[in-house]
Design a protein around this nucleic acid. Structure first.
Length: 480
RNA sequence: GGCGAGUUGGCGGAGUGGUUACGCAGCGGAUUGCAAAUCCGUGCACGGGGGUUCGAUUCCCCCACUCGCCUCCA
């Protein structure tokens, strides 16, 4: 049996992973707040934890892993976006706008993350569908003396939980000393955080023992994790920027409401995506969305390419998105597509992944090494295909798209009479030139073909044309 | 200011107490009218200082720099 070793943020060590129950490995990952297209930073944990999900399924069996990732569909940023839309002339009431906005954003998210080769989690709960569980948990926290109501709010009393700050390695006193936030006057302690807050009449709100209001951000994960995974489960993942305060608060809420459980045993945090050495974030405005990248016609970026670039960097290191990395990914993936084009993927149930691949991934998700292992499999295309697919690359859709384009624009095989004609014309031109020693016409045509991204293969038996990594059909039209 | 992570060849990026992954680029060769593609070969490294050690890029200490969190954020 493969032993998976994972770096546990809670202990700051790489530890051998042993699930609580081998027949039900449980993982929770913080999902997006749905008010906008996912940017590249949002995509990183999706890809990273997708790899972990796949690895767990491989080791423990596909039916023995439960992966929960939430959608935050109640949040001040969503409310703010709805108000913006009203200001821009949308006449619907706020709740109607929000419903449309969150539904649409979730659809986009599924589309975009699907193109990155990410499997859907086992469950994707929406916060608004679990408000009752949140209210219940808040009630328990008040009963147990870990929370208090004040001016329509309910606050968590951080002083009631001695372990507060342990995950992120800080103490309440130090944080207060270095605090730069304004402190609401009704807080007993400056670090106390909101479990429930009142809603204005037009804002989304739910009736509760503390009046009409909405949950604070952190309680949803605690409540949904408890409902769907139980008081104790195996893995909790998310971006490093969530470690404090979000995950710290989740631990406080869950452990105080359910002291009989241990909440998550392994905490995994992925590092940030950077642009020009700075974290990509919405607040800095230096972000671009996955969809921007996929739709930018001239760069022709595919989901596989984004996935490749993501996994080329270890998940605990910051990752810079650069043109050079995208190009490397393009070149490698084009090659993989080409050499596996005519093969049929093995039945995933019967296929045994490469030991090197599994060993690499089992060592705290060394995806870089795993990709190197795939590259070394190039001389065995069937194994390359099957192993690459196990890593989420070379999907059926991507392969079909590649194959169609390749056949349409290569000579000698496939369905392209135009390209065949072009190759023959080129060959005749070249043979003439060999007689006359005047290569100017041949060189001009060759340069044009190459600049369209075609590979021009000249041999004694003739000329072959094939699309290369940078092939662009649009450029072909200029060629006479 | 507090806490944490990092600094590897031209670039990206693993890893290891001794024999230096891998990819790209570069260089040389085969091939070609010249190329492209392909194949073969090849040079280049571990931020600075001190310590432990027979031996450190790898362990320890100090310094410098970079990044992140401490406020919404994946």
């Amino acid at each position: 049996m493969t032993t998976i070793r994972l770096y546990n943020s809670a202990t700051r060590r790489k530890e051998a992973f042993e699930p609580l129950r081998r027949d039900d490995v449980r993982m929770y990952v913080c999902g997006p707040t749905v008010y906008d297209r996912a940017h590249l930073g949002n995509a990183r944990p999706v890809v990273v934890f997708d790899v972990l999900f796949r690895l767990l399924r491989h080791v423990y069996g596909p039916d023995h892993v439960t992966y929960v990732r939430n959608f935050t569909d109640v949040d001040d940023k969503i409310n703010a976006r709805a108000r913006e839309m009203q200001a821009a002339g949308d006449t619907r009431d706020m709740n109607a706008i929000i419903r449309m906005l969150t539904d649409e954003t979730i659809g986009w998210y599924h589309d975009d993350m699907g193109e990155l080769g990410a499997l859907r989690p086992t469950q994707e709960p929406r916060a608004t569908e679990w408000i009752g569980a949140m209210i219940g948990m808040i009630g328990v926290l008040i009963e147990r003396g870990h929370a208090y109501a004040a001016e329509g709010h309910v606050l968590f009393d951080v002083r009631s939980f001695p372990a507060y700050g342990r995950l992120s390695g800080r103490s309440v006193d130090e944080m207060i000393a270095g605090s730069r936030v304004e402190i609401a006057p009704f807080k007993r302690d400056p670090m106390d955080f909101v479990l429930w807050k009142p809603s204005a009449p037009e804002e989304p709100g739910w009736d509760s023992p503390w009046g009409r209001g909405r949950p604070g951000w952190h309680i949803e994960c605690s409540a949904m994790a408890r409902e769907l995974l139980g008081e104790s489960f195996d893995i909790h993942g998310g971006g490093l920027d969530l470690q404090f305060p979000h995950h710290e608060n989740e631990i406080a809420q869950s452990c105080c409401a359910h002291p009989e459980g241990s909440f998550a045993r392994f905490w995994l945090h992925n590092e940030m995506v950077q642009v020009d050495g700075k974290k990509m974030s919405k607040s800095l405005g230096n972000f671009f969305t996955v969809r921007d990248l996929l739709d930018r016609r001239e760069s022709r970026v595919t989901g596989d390419m984004i996935r490749f670039v993501m996994l080329r960097t270890h998940y605990r290191s910051p990752m810079d998105w650069t043109e050079e990395k995208a190009e490397e990914a393009r070149r490698v993936l084009h090659d993989w597509q080409k050499v596996t084009m005519d093969l049929v993927p093995s039945d995933p149930a019967a296929f045994v992944p490469s030991t090197v691949l599994i060993d690499a991934l089992s060592d705290d998700l060394n995806t870089h090494e795993a990709l190197s292992a795939l590259m070394r499999l190039r001389s065995e295309p069937q194994r390359l295909l099957d192993n690459a697919r196990a890593m989420g690359f070379l999907s059926d859709e991507g392969r079909a798209e590649f194959r169609d384009e390749w056949l349409a624009y290569s000579s000698g095989r496939g369905k392209s009479e135009v390209m065949e004609q072009l190759a023959q014309d080129f060959d005749r031109l070249r043979k003439d030139a060999l007689e006359t020693k005047d290569f100017s016409k041949v060189d001009a045509l060759k340069a044009a073909l190459l600049s369209a991204g075609l590979e021009v293969r000249i041999s004694k038996s003739g000329v072959e044309l094939e699309p290369g990594p940078h092939f662009d059909p649009a450029k072909l039209e200029c060629i006479e």
